[in-house]
């Protein structure tokens, strides 16, 4: 398991691995939105939580198809399936590796980009907390979508269509936490629901993903 995690991280940071792709996209969104909306602090501050969460979600989506497609193309998915690693564990580890190279850097970069969007000072803590709790769900759900479309040629479009609706609850509750946090309101309910989605997805979806991969490898 550790070996698979290290291999995936190593592949991600080496040439053509896709590390930084999501981060660069997130940066672009956060830089371009103020230019498009205009420099009025009040408006920007109001939409900042939503923009940051949508940006994080779309950057996660960018690299999803790489989770299994590359391993499928070069045959290592077949070999992993016949190796002593349980497929459920392999899927969970690959989702974790995806989160470490996309979700975690996004979470760490978000406060800096929040400045560009005039996010109210009280929102920064909740922005980091909500992304930290919510982005693992994006990776796990995305891994499930990637597992469903693994054998499909140019499956990226199908993958996006499958995964986007599943991302909606995370987006709503994540942005709600930041919005309420920035306004100084009670955040316990959306935060609990956000955490519940992540916990549920992480507990159940690796099994579904492993089953989907087994069917797709036939």
């Amino acid at each position: 398991m550790t070996a698979l995690l290290i291999r995936d991280l190593r592949l991600a940071v080496r040439a053509g691995g896709g590390f930084g792709l999501g981060l660069a996209f997130f940066l672009l969104v956060a830089v371009l939105v103020p230019l498009g909306v205009g420099p009025e602090g009040g408006t920007l501050g109001k939409i900042a939580p939503g923009i940051l969460w949508v940006g994080a979600l779309l950057s996660c989506l960018l690299s999803l198809d790489r989770i299994f497609a590359l391993d499928f193309e070069d045959g290592s998915l077949d070999l992993l399936a016949t190796s002593p690693l349980p497929m459920e564990g392999a899927v969970a580890v690959k989702a974790l590796a995806h989160w470490l190279v996309t979700g975690l850097p996004l979470t760490l970069a978000a406060p800096v980009l929040g400045v560009l969007l005039y996010l109210p000072a009280s929102g920064y803590g909740w922005l980091v907390v909500s992304l930290l709790i919510g982005t693992p769900a994006l990776s796990v759900i995305g891994a499930f979508g990637a597992a469903l479309t693994v054998g499909v040629k140019r499956g990226g479009l199908l993958l996006s269509l499958l995964v986007l609706p599943l991302y909606v609850p995370t987006l709503i509750f994540g942005a709600e936490v930041v919005k309420r946090g920035a306004a100084g309101m009670e955040i316990a309910t959306p935060l609990a629901l956000l955490a519940a989605i992540t916990a549920g997805a992480a507990a159940l979806l690796p099994f579904a993903s492993a089953a989907a991969i087994r069917v797709n490898l036939r």
């Binding site: 291999r7 190593r10 592949l11 080496r14 070069d74 045959g75 290592s76 077949d78 070999l79 016949t82």
Partner: peptide, 19 residues
């Protein structure tokens, strides 16, 4: 007890032989 080798070698281009 079984080791399977398919048509594809399952090699990662950006890892070294030893890795």
């Amino acid at each position: 007890s079984l080791a399977y080798a398919s048509h594809a070698d399952g090699l990662k281009a950006t890892l070294t032989v030893a890795e």
